[in-house]
């Protein structure tokens, strides 16, 4: 518990984490509400979806879950990957593992306290984005004279849980990369390239090449999109960095694969932390 409080203090006092949270909220609301609503009010053909009632309906409160959850596997994942990589990688950059590991707590206790603190820190990432999305959708409803209907509570709770789970996997991935690379720069670089480029390429070519199709079924974004699609979310099918052009898997399979990834990331990181010599700042 003591180490958890220490790690929460570290996360809370780091300005970079608040910047990531703000950027994530801005990106999610911008792409899920502001731009689509601008397209609707400007009568633009927004990404080929068409305009009019269909576009407006997606922005109303009853479609809150379907509209905002799409942001989690892409923007959200990338943001918290950076947060995870910063939280762990900075310890190597600053050499702060030495004082942390020479207190009473021990290596694994410090590491798991950090993981738990990250998991707790992800809660506002989920709650605030849903809160802002709710406010945006209510504002649009009110402005367009539409009735305000809330999504079913169970759907909302499932979406909150799925969103947190997706972010947890990506944050653990950031920690994993930081532990392996003993720093932040390479971890963030590799993580972003993986999330934005490699997964997209594999998913795209998976339509033509069977092997890549098989590989894509264990990738983070494929399973992330598959998980939220099982909540009734329509996946973004456009090409581009945030688009998803691969085949989705079942919700259960996605949840299992993501849970497996989470366990593997944490287990390997913990094993490396436990065994590897701790030298000075890198």
């Amino acid at each position: 518990m003591d180490s958890l409080i220490a790690e929460l203090l570290l996360l809370r006092k780091r300005v970079g984490n608040w910047v990531l949270l703000g950027f994530w909220l801005f990106m999610a609301i911008l792409f899920s509400y502001l731009l689509p609503y601008y397209a609707y009010t400007s009568d633009l053909n927004f990404h080929g979806r068409g305009v009019g009632a269909v576009l407006l309906i997606a922005l109303l409160p009853q479609n809150l879950v379907a509209n905002i959850t799409n942001s989690f596997p892409f923007f959200g994942g990338t943001m918290v990957l950076i947060m995870g990589a910063l939280a762990m990688g900075s310890e190597y950059n600053w050499g702060t593992l030495t004082p942390a590991f020479t207190q009473r707590a021990g290596r694994l206790k410090v590491f798991f306290a950090k993981m738990l603190a990250l998991a707790i820190a992800l809660v506002p990432f989920v709650l605030l984005v849903f809160l802002l999305a709710f406010l945006a959708s209510v504002s649009i409803s009110w402005r367009e004279g539409q009735p305000i209907e809330l999504p079913p509570l169970w759907d909302l709770l499932r979406a909150l849980a799925a969103g947190w789970f997706l972010l947890a996997v990506w944050a653990a991935f950031g920690v994993f990369l930081a532990v392996l690379s003993r720093g932040t720069a390479l971890a963030i670089g590799l993580g972003i390239i993986y999330g934005l480029v490699i997964e997209g390429i594999i998913s795209s070519f998976g339509r033509q090449i069977d092997l890549l199709k098989q590989i894509s079924t264990v990738l983070l974004r494929t399973n992330g999109y598959s998980l939220i699609s099982s909540l009734g979310v329509t996946l973004p099918s456009e090409a581009g960095p945030g688009g998803f052009s691969g085949d989705s898997v079942s919700g259960t399979q996605a949840a299992l694969v993501l849970a497996g990834c989470l366990i593997v990331f944490i287990a390997i990181s913990a094993a490396v932390i436990r065994r590897r010599d701790v030298t000075g700042a890198s």
Binding site: L10, K13, R14, V15, W94, T96, T98, P99, T102, G280
Partner: peptide, 10 residues
């Protein structure tokens, strides 16, 4: 041990 290592933002 060696140079003092602390969190620079704290």
């Amino acid at each position: 041990v060696e140079t003092p290592a602390f969190y620079p933002y704290l």
